[in-house]
C-alpha cells in the first residue's frame, strides 16, 4: 500500500491520459478534441518531469542554490522542448479548425465530413 501511495504522481499521469483518451474518443466537436490533445500533452509533460524528480532535490540552477543535490536537468530540458512543440502544433490545429468552420459553418467532425469542398 505504501508503494502504491509513493507512486501517486505516476497514477496522476495515468488518470490524465485516460481523461484525455475519453475526451478524444467521445467528443465530436473539433475544438473539444483539441482540448483532449492538449490534456494528453500535459500528461506527457508531467510524466517527463516526474521521471526526473529526485527526493529532496532543488532546481538544477546554481545561482544562490541551497545545495548541490539537484533534480535531473535532461528531462526538464526535454519537457521544455515538448511544451514549445505543443504550443506550435496547437496553434496549427486551431487555425485548421477556423478554416474548416469558415468553409463548412461547422466545427462538428461528423457533420463537416459530409460537406465537400
Amino acid at each position: 500500500m505504501s508503494e502504491f501511495l509513493a507512486n501517486i504522481p505516476f497514477l496522476a499521469v495515468a488518470a490524465l491520459i485516460c481523461v484525455a483518451l475519453y475526451i478524444m474518443m467521445s467528443q465530436r466537436n473539433l475544438i473539444k478534441v483539441v482540448m483532449g490533445v492538449v490534456i494528453l500533452e500535459s500528461a506527457v509533460n508531467l510524466f517527463l518531469v516526474t521521471l526526473g524528480y529526485r527526493e529532496g532535490g532543488v532546481a538544477p540552477i546554481f545561482t544562490n542554490a541551497p545545495g548541490t543535490l539537484m533534480v535531473l536537468p535532461v528531462p526538464q530540458a526535454l519537457t521544455l522542448t515538448s511544451i514549445v512543440i505543443g504550443v506550435a502544433t496547437t496553434a496549427l490545429m486551431l487555425s485548421m479548425i477556423m478554416l474548416i468552420y469558415r468553409h463548412t459553418g461547422e466545427t462538428d467532425a461528423e457533420k463537416s465530413r459530409k460537406v465537400k469542398g
Binding site: E3, A6, N7, T50, L51, Y53, E55
Partner: peptide
C-alpha cells in the same frame, strides 16, 4: 504500469 514502475523520486 504506474504502480509497477520504479519508485518515485529515485531516478
Amino acid at each position: 504500469a504506474a504502480v509497477t514502475i520504479r519508485p518515485f523520486g529515485e531516478p
